[in-house]
């Protein structure tokens, strides 16, 4: 049954994220220092982030998009690279808005 999208719903990840409201702020509230990531062997953030915002790049770095962030904190909790992630909350009133949380 694992990973069988046709088993129940073949919902694309983008469609899943489209159900959530994000009031995107101008300032990126999470900044990834890709130079630090290049020396990271686990890249735990890539699978752990529930919003799937971390993409490994071909040169061993990490490409990150802050716009659809749940602000859950998973990435900085699992990150083992010292200083790879600068994590703050988005500016007041911005970011994710849950209605059925």
């Amino acid at each position: 049954m694992s990973g069988d999208a046709s088993g129940y719903d073949g919902l694309a990840f983008d469609d899943r994220m489209a159900t959530v409201e994000f009031r995107v702020a101008e300032r990126a509230h999470i900044v990834v220092d890709s130079d630090v990531c290049r020396s990271c062997t686990t890249k735990a953030c890539v699978t752990a982030c529930p919003a799937n915002l971390f993409a490994p790049t071909s040169d061993g770095g990490i490409l990150f998009n802050y716009e659809q962030c749940f602000e859950c904190g998973t990435c900085y909790q699992v990150c083992n690279g010292e200083g790879a992630l600068t994590w703050t909350y988005p500016d007041g009133g911005h970011g994710v808005v849950f209605r059925h949380g």
Binding site: M1, S2, G3, D4, A5, G7, Y8, D9, F13, R16, T42, A44, T47, A48, P50, N52, T74, Q77, V78
Partner: peptide, 20 residues
């Protein structure tokens, strides 16, 4: 969180498993 990370499994796949 620790074990999810170690297993390299995506959380939404677990929900899909559960629903299936």
């Amino acid at each position: 969180l620790e074990h999810l990370t170690a297993a390299k499994v995506r959380a939404e796949d677990l929900v899909a498993d559960l629903k299936a």
